[in-house]
Write a protein that binds this DNA or RNA. Sequence first.
DNA 1: GATGCACCTGAACGCCACCTGACTGACGGG
DNA 2: CCCGTCAGTCAGGTGGCGTTCAGGTGCATC
Lengths: 223, 223
Amino acid sequence: MGHMTVVGICEDDPDVRRVLTDALRMGGHRVVIARNGREGVANLGVGSDVEVLVLDIGLPDADGRDVCQALRAGGQHAPALFLTAFDAVHDRVSGFHAGGDDYVVKPFAISEVLVRIDALARRAPVEAPQVSGLTLHPDRFTVSAGDQEVSLTPTEFRLLAAIAVSPGTVVRRRTAVAAAWPGGAIVNENTIDSYIRRLRVKLSALDSPVELVTVRGVGFTLR
Amino acid sequence: MGHMTVVGICEDDPDVRRVLTDALRMGGHRVVIARNGREGVANLGVGSDVEVLVLDIGLPDADGRDVCQALRAGGQHAPALFLTAFDAVHDRVSGFHAGGDDYVVKPFAISEVLVRIDALARRAPVEAPQVSGLTLHPDRFTVSAGDQEVSLTPTEFRLLAAIAVSPGTVVRRRTAVAAAWPGGAIVNENTIDSYIRRLRVKLSALDSPVELVTVRGVGFTLR
DNA sequence: GATGCACCTGAACGCCACCTGACTGACGGG
DNA sequence: CCCGTCAGTCAGGTGGCGTTCAGGTGCATC
């Protein structure tokens, strides 16, 4: 369900880190890692694209709750899930008071943590993938302009999303391919052209001034 | 903290109900009460001003998760916290799949429940809920549109409920399977297709514009 | 104007996700 | 014991989607 969530993990135990990152990546998420409190504040701030925070409380150099508060003070409002060995009620309560949104006690079932992360991501402020009059609906696999809406296949959607990330700026051919065909699948050079064409056809169906333009020798862009 | 939140409680045990309502009112919140699943669906829907749901899973006439799904299908997107005596991991996971946002096991510390409710209220819903036009009745295992009503088998109901939690958005095949066959029961890949078909047949019986659409390679959605 | 290359265009192909209809076996109630 | 209901399975068919191909077109360079 969770559509490609970026999860920030702040955890000193390499084993726990490994289990979490593996499971999250398996579920199609991206992971940003911090090994201690200092790295946490440095790597998981507002510029990091992180959508959900997973914070260990028992860090070697700091308390995870302090890390959370420091991040909050820096404008990072992504929902936070605390991970900890403590299980006293007052520990949990203090976690929430520090601006946390959930709390899981070690040892935890990985499936439960995953599903709680999904729940937090679901509630996260909905990103507005709106580009020059086009709106992408990741939960629906459609694009819309105004009241008109056309549905895309998964591959078409990935490709369009890759190009639509930065309206105006050109997305390189390589970059677009890597985004639309993850896992480095080998595809004919021409395949992307076919998909570009199909996207153009579908986009022309909604009467929007937006155009999928080719920049010869470089890539594609949205105008 | 969370100032003047309206909390909807669905709980059959009078003692638990009393403890919760007292504590919540003490904290300056308003409380809407339902004593069983039927009242839950009736009292805590979209017209009720409720901002956070607290649902007992072990209700006399229905499963709290079904109540949650029914409310979701009716357009109620307030965050939900499940309350239960069960503590198996798959119970918790299935709660989240039913559209829940948190999970607390009885016996619970009232202070923790309060603080979790505050955390949910803080993350209050943003999205515009979409309504399917279908009404699920977890106490009867039926769906209705307008005055027409068809009865479903338990498995059919779980599957439809999982897809109906978020009308318009695509529910992945895996998610639907996990919801309809809880406990990780191994079923043939094709089985879900059979059930989808049966649901389509039954839904076509009620003349509603609602359609059970498959998004090839992804999952299913309600339109 | 000739040549080469990047990209466009339309069509075709094959796999596999999904659909369809029927069947089996388990259970339960009359 | 029969019958109805429900869960799950199976074999066969279909079409959507990903991919490739064979041409065509236009820009760029000499």
